[in-house]
Amino acid sequence: MAITEKLTQVFREVFDDNTLVLTDEMTADDVDAWDSLSHVNLMIAIEIAFGIEFKQNEIQSFANVGELRQSIEEKLGK
């Protein structure tokens, strides 16, 4: 639960939208400001917020928010 909350916070900051509510099925198409540039900002913000690192081949590979959250959970060893 804590992860989802923290992740929501990161999303809201990066996309500058305090009303964003994350769902596992959410994709870049659902968020207006989510393009290839802000995606990089998002991934970097997640790395810093959670203290984790993504591999090169992971950065552009997540199909939706659910997969992203799972990857964060795995990296945190939970």
Partner: peptide, 20 residues
Amino acid sequence: RTYLFIPLEFARKKAKVLRQ
């Protein structure tokens, strides 16, 4: 984007000012 921009972005992720 794949081979230069993204690696640069991550290599310089600590840069606060005008990184992107």
